[in-house]
Amino acid sequence: MSVRIRKIVTILEETLIEEGRPVSPPTRRAAAVAVIENPLAGRYVEDLSELFAAGEELGGLLGERARAALDIPGPSVESFGKAAAVGADGGLEHAAALLHPKLGAPLRALLGKGAALIPSSKKRAGPGATFDIPLGHKDAARVRSHFDGMEVSIADAPRADEIAIAVALTDSGRPHPRVGGLRKADVKGEDGLV
């Protein structure tokens, strides 16, 4: 790993009842979060390629941890998302460098497919901050039942010179979807939208 990882946290959430009605089978979503040292904290550095490379490694590692938490094969994953919380002495562009240039390819390789844009969010925050990982269907961004988000937080991260970076995967959409739109059964999965 090109950056130093302090800890890795995996979160699995399983919803059995929503709005008083059973969810069968339960919907499940998993997030894997790595807390890494930010090698560029506290100074302005033009070239962020060090973080591009770290993003590539973390895309594979965190994707695999989240998949393992769901305990399903990669192609059975239905939606995905990513997010980063940068500590006080880092820049939002550091989060962008981890998330955008290279993280997606190894994650999609793990899932077998994944034509859609991976929805993302980023913020600067202190230890214990909650951040929300947006979720969307992995093959067709317009699948309305799979628009969702997963909140995560780590009590002791990110410290000022750290970044918490997260990948979330699901085996399902929202518990009782009923607002219409493109259905997952009708996905073509070619252009990433429909």
Binding site: K7, V9, L12, T15, L16, I17
Partner: peptide, 17 residues
């Protein structure tokens, strides 16, 4: 017992400085 949700969190700590 009606369980609405289970949440499982695993933390692996490689170092703390």
């Amino acid at each position: 017992i009606k369980v609405r949700k289970f949440v499982t969190v695993v933390e692996e700590i490689l170092h703390e400085g």
